[in-house]
Design a protein around this nucleic acid. Structure first.
Lengths: 136, 136
DNA sequence: GTAGCTGCAAACTCTTTGCAACTCT
DNA sequence: AGAGTTGCAAAGAGTTTGCAGCTAC
């Protein structure tokens, strides 16, 4: 599915500069939820002339286009991931590892709750923070 | 229930200085989820000599003691509320108003999901973002 | 050709911290 | 008395922005 992000960006009217291609590639290949700094470091390995300002600007654009999701896992900075499919996160408090999950029951419940409060659900955020259960 | 926070702080070994009393009072009386700046402004109305550094330090202490909950509603800064009872938030995207709610079904579901992933749930975060349903 | 994009460095916002003075207990 | 707390100002982290030059379309 490489290049899919590029197509969406072009369609949105963004110019496909060399820097943007690199940043999009980094995001598409990421299997984690990289910080701006991490995206910057990985992008620099491909094109060392990229500046962090461009990374910030690009990520903000992608966020506005909803091509990317910005997370703030209570760390004081943002982390990003491509907005492929809808899921939630469980953060391992001991390792920082982020586990993704989906749950249909939860989706229904969210809408039901919002509706009961008199609202149309536009967006939401659910994060679980836990510790791995130790086997004996 | 005024003064309850003060008692908990004393019990935790914190000195009850004039500044802390003022900040605790502001938090107890708040019916919203004030930012640090907002707490500072309200505190200054009671004692204009309070510095924002003290507000930051006090809120961090209260957060460590779990007497207060720190929120980061994707705004780029923190907002606080006294940790009275457990609930979640629905943020009105049009007005910024924050509606609180509780839902037993949701509590159970959270634990079930974490367990299925092999985790003990330590903490979590759920926020809904919506728009008020217009009546005709 | 030109609107949009970039790198650089400076600026900005939110938050933390070193220090000397002060204050609860 | 003494450990903890404070205000101030400076520093720190993360992020944004003005500008002159560059580039995709």
């Amino acid at each position: 599915m490489l290049k899919e992000l590029q197509q969406k960006c072009s369609k949105a009217g963004l110019k496909m500069t060399g820097q943007r291609k690199v940043i999009l590639q980094v995001l598409e290949e990421a299997e984690d939820h990289p910080s701006v700094e991490a995206v910057y470091d990985r992008a620099k390995e491909i094109d060392s002339s990229i500046s962090i300002a461009t990374v910030y600007r690009t990520l903000n654009l992608l966020d506005e286009l909803d091509l990317v999701i910005r997370h703030e896992f209570q760390e004081g900075y943002s982390r990003y991931e491509v907005n492929w499919d809808h899921h939630h996160h469980l953060v391992d408090l001991e390792t920082g590892e982020v586990v993704e999950f989906q749950n249909e029951e939860l989706e229904k419940l969210k809408h039901k709750i919002a509706e009961e409060l008199g609202y149309d659900l536009v967006d939401h955020r659910l994060e679980l923070y836990g510790k791995k259960i130790k086997k004996k």
